[in-house]
């Protein structure tokens, strides 16, 4: 009987640790931006830190959940200029580096103006779109 609470405590500790691991980055506001939608909180940082028109950049992304929903197993990234009706000329590649963590390369915004950066977070068959505006001068 004493063993069972111990196991439960271990399991809870392990679960909390996993959530905190992903959550600690996606809660950070020190660098980058944060977006929330549904059960997801997503934080991303660009590399280099400033996006320049016509220059490639990478993204480091952390996704955590604000409830007990499972972490996403996939992520797609795109960017569009709604005023001009076009997107990027390049398709970024996204790799999952750890649970809730992704690395994207090959993004490039080729015009100054208002862009919308889109993150399609996928968990199983369900996709949730998180997006944020970026204005380039």
């Amino acid at each position: 009987m004493q063993f069972q609470p111990f196991l439960l405590a271990c399991a809870l500790l392990s679960f909390a640790s996993a959530q905190a691991s992903a959550g600690s980055d996606c809660n950070s506001r020190q660098n980058g931006q944060q977006i929330e939608k549904g059960p997801y909180r997503l934080a991303f940082q660009t590399e280099p830190s400033n996006i320049t028109v016509g220059k490639f950049f990478d993204l480091a992304i952390s996704v955590c959940t604000t409830d007990r929903s499972p972490l996403p197993d996939g992520l797609k990234i795109d960017a569009i200029m709604p005023m001009h009706g076009h997107g990027m000329n390049y398709r970024p590649s996204v790799k999952r580096s750890a649970p809730g963590k992704f690395q994207a390369t090959g993004l490039m915004m080729h015009m100054a103006g208002s862009w919308v950066l889109r993150f399609d977070v996928r968990q199983g068959d369900k996709a949730t779109r998180l997006q944020t505006k970026i204005t380039l001068k």
């Binding site: 490639f56 398709r91 590649s93 090959g106 490039m108």
Partner: peptide, 12 residues
């Protein structure tokens, strides 16, 4: 080669 690796062709 980053641009070549990621360039994508579309109807646009």
């Amino acid at each position: 080669g980053i641009a070549t690796r990621h360039v994508t062709r579309s109807h646009q």
